[in-house]
């Protein structure tokens, strides 16, 4: 299957959102919550602040493989993983836009540029790196500036440090674990019923 076929809905092929997508969303939430809260590297400082957050890879690949369902899971699982570490519900809700964009951008980019999730060509790599980097930039700007600053945790002077820390930690984790997951599992995922070619199906 080449990269065109991966995303192309063939003539006569019927694709509709189904129970399998609800299930995969729930399972992604489970993986993301556990990896986010208990991962060997994740160091939850509370309030959703983590240094090096491997769960971002779940957001990235979730969007790429499972479209809008991956984006929904990416937006919701931090509520659970943050909750486990004692983060208040309103803080978790405030993070939703960042989490959403971190999954949405790779999702859109792979579909728009018809990139292969197996990362076979240089172009696929560029689409992957650019999309997750843009998502991370948004997340790294939004989270310290809007959430942490908004809840009064940070002073204006300290915000740049947190922006850089946030971006660096997520970017490295996203690249390392995102690449490993895409390389190891895309071949299987694209043949499953849960794989999403368009937005929801």
């Amino acid at each position: 299957m080449d990269e065109q076929q991966i995303w192309q809905v063939e003539e006569g092929e019927t694709r509709s959102a189904g129970i399998i997508h609800i299930v995969i969303t729930a399972l992604l939430i489970g993986i993301g919550a556990v990896v986010g809260a208990f991962g060997s590297f994740s160091l939850p400082l509370g309030f959703g602040v983590n240094f090096f957050w491997p769960a971002i890879a779940v957001q990235n690949v979730g969007g790429i493989w499972f479209g809008a369902w991956g984006v929904i899971a990416a937006s919701l699982f931090p509520i659970i993983s943050n909750g486990i570490t004692g983060t208040p519900v309103y803080v978790s809700l405030a993070y939703i836009p960042a989490n959403l964009v971190q999954a949405l951008l790779p999702m859109l980019a792979f579909r728009y540029f018809k990139a292969d999730p197996r990362l076979n060509s240089k172009r696929d790599w560029i689409v992957f790196l650019a999309s997750i980097t843009l998502g991370n930039i948004f997340g790294a700007l939004y989270s310290p500036l809007v959430v942490l600053k908004g809840f009064g945790l940070l002073t204006a002077e300290s915000v740049p440090v947190f922006i850089w820390g946030w971006f660096g930690g997520n970017e490295v984790a996203g690249i390392i674990f995102g690449v490993i997951l895409l390389k190891a599992l895309s071949n299987v995922v694209i043949t499953t019923n849960a794989f999403v070619k368009r937005w929801f199906a």
Partner: peptide
């Protein structure tokens, strides 16, 4: 530790994919 984490995350996803069919 990185290698160890990779050894966790891939089986977790693989199990989830298998389970998604069973649950559905």
């Amino acid at each position: 530790k990185l290698r160890q984490f990779v050894m966790y995350i891939i089986p977790l996803f693989a199990l989830a994919l298998r389970r998604s069919d069973e649950f559905a």
